[in-house]
Amino acid sequence: MSTYREEKRRDQQLRAEQDREDRRLELEAQLEIQRLKAEENRKDADARHRQEQADKKAKQAKAQAKKAAAAAQRAKLLRWLKTNPATLFVAFVMVASIVPAILSQIGALTGASVAAPMAGLLAAMLEGGAWAITFMGKQAEDAGREPRKYRIGTWAVAAVAAAVNFWHGLEAYAAHPWVAFVLGASSLFAIYIWDLKTHGSHGKTKAQKQAEKAHKAHVSARRKHHPEIVEAAVKLQAALPFGVLDDESAFAAAWRIHTGAEPGLSAELYATATTAVLSLGAAFELGDNVREELLETGFKAARLNPFAELTQTPGSQAGIGSNPPEPPAEKPRETGPRGRSDEELDTLLPDALSAAAELVADGKQISATGLAKKLQIRREDALKLRDRVIEQRRLHVA
C-alpha cells in the first residue's frame, strides 16, 4: 500500500515538473518572439532613418545643383554681354527700327481704308517676310550654301516696306518731309545693321585674302612651269575615288613618278649641283698648273674674304691641303722585289708632278693610290712620291 502511494506521489511530482518545464519553454518562446519582433522593428526604423537621410541629402544636392546651374547661366550671360557688346547694341537698334516701321505701315494701310486687323497682318507680312528671308539666308550661309539669292530677296522686300513708309510719311507729315525719309529708312536700317554685322564678322580677313591670292599665284606658276606634272596629277585624282588625293598629294605623287626624286628635285638638278662642285675645284687646280697669276689672285681673295671660315683656302683648293689618311702600306714580302731607290724616285718626280696635275684637274686629291695607278708603280713607291710631289707643290705655291 505504501508503495502505491509513493509511486503516485512521484508521478504527481514528475507531472508538476513537466508542467513547469513546459511553461518555462513557452515563456522562453514568447520572449524570443518578442525579441525578434523588437529587432525587426529596430531594423525597420534604422532603414527608414537612412532613407530619410538619403532623401534629405538628395534634395540638398538637387537644390545645390539647381543653384549652381542658375549661377552658371548668369555667369554665361554676363560673359556673353561682356564679349558681345556689338550684338547687344545691334539688337537694340534693330528693335528701335523695326517697331516704328511696323507702326508706320499699319498707319499707312489703315489710312488707305484697310481694316486695322488686316493692316497689322499686312505690315507684319512685309517686315516679318524680310526678316524671315534674312534668317533663312543666315542659315544657308552657316551650312556652306550660297546666300546671295536670300540677300536679294531680303533687300527687295525691305525696299517695298520702305516705299510704303516713305509714301505714308509724305502724306502724314507734309510739313516735315524729312520725316518721310526717316520712316522709309526705318525699314532698311535694321536690315543694313544685321547684314553689316553678319557679313562683317564672317567675312574674310586681309591675311586670308592675301593667302588666297598667293595660293592662286602659286597654282598659276606651277601650271606654267610644270604642265606635264600638273596634268599627270589631275589624271591621278581622276583615276582614284573622289577625295582620296588632295591637290598637293597628287602633285607630289606625279612629281615622284616623273622624276624619281622628291618634289622640287630631279636628276638634272642633282647633276647640275654635282658638276658645279667639281668644276669649282677643277678651276682652282687648273689655274695652279696653267696660270700662276690665278693662284696669286686666289691668295689675295682669301686674305680679303670676310667669310674665310666658310670657304676653302687656296692651298686646299690646289690639292695640297690636308689629305685623307692613307692606310698603312703593306709590308713587302722578304722574298718579293724591293722598292725603288731615292735616285730612281727623283727620276720619276717629273712624271709624278704631271700625274698629280691630272688628278687635280679631275677634281681628285693627290693620293698614293692615284699616283700608283697613273705611273704603274708599286704603292710603297707611290707613297714616297706623293710626299715629294706635295712638297714641290707647296714650294711652288709659296
Rank of each mutant, 00 (worst) to 15 (best):
L371W: 01
T275V: 14
N289K: 13
P328D: 10
E358M: 04
K373L: 02
L348Y: 09
G321Q: 00
L310H: 06
L295V: 07
E330Y: 10
A282D: 06
G370W: 04
P314A: 02
P325K: 15
L286S: 08
L348T: 07
G319P: 05
L304Y: 10
G315V: 14
R338Q: 12
P350K: 02
A368W: 12
R340H: 10
A356Y: 01
P327K: 15
E292K: 15
E330S: 12
N289T: 14
A356C: 02
G315C: 09
A271V: 05
S279G: 02
L345R: 07
D351F: 03
A273D: 12
A361L: 06
E293A: 13
A368M: 13
S316T: 15
I366G: 00
K373T: 04
K364A: 10
G339K: 09
T335Q: 03
P350M: 02
N323D: 12
V277S: 12
E343W: 13
A355D: 00
I366R: 03
T275D: 14
T275F: 14
V360I: 09
A357Y: 02
Q317K: 12
T311R: 01
T347P: 08
G281H: 11
S354I: 00
E296D: 10
E309V: 11
A355N: 04
P325I: 13
D362W: 03
A357Q: 01
A282M: 06
A357S: 06
P332H: 08
T272M: 10
R338E: 15
E309S: 14
T272R: 12
P332V: 07
A357V: 05
S367W: 08
A357N: 01
G298W: 00
I320S: 11
L280A: 07
L375D: 11
A271H: 01
G336L: 05
E343Y: 03
A273S: 14
G321A: 02
A276S: 10
T297Y: 06
N305H: 02
K374Q: 05
A355K: 06
P327W: 11
A329T: 11
L345I: 03
L349A: 05
A276P: 03
T311H: 11
P350C: 00
E285C: 14
D351W: 00
N323Y: 10
A271Q: 08
T369G: 02
A282G: 02
G363N: 11
V360E: 11
L278H: 12
G287C: 05
E330K: 15
L280D: 12
Q312G: 09
L278M: 13
A308V: 08
E292W: 14
G370R: 03
Q365E: 14
A308H: 01
K373R: 11
R333F: 09
A329Y: 01
N305W: 05
A276Q: 06
V277D: 12
L304P: 07
A273M: 12
P314K: 07
A361H: 02
L280P: 04
K364T: 05
P332M: 08
L304W: 08
E268N: 10
A368N: 12
A352D: 04
E334G: 04
A302T: 07
N305P: 03
A301V: 08
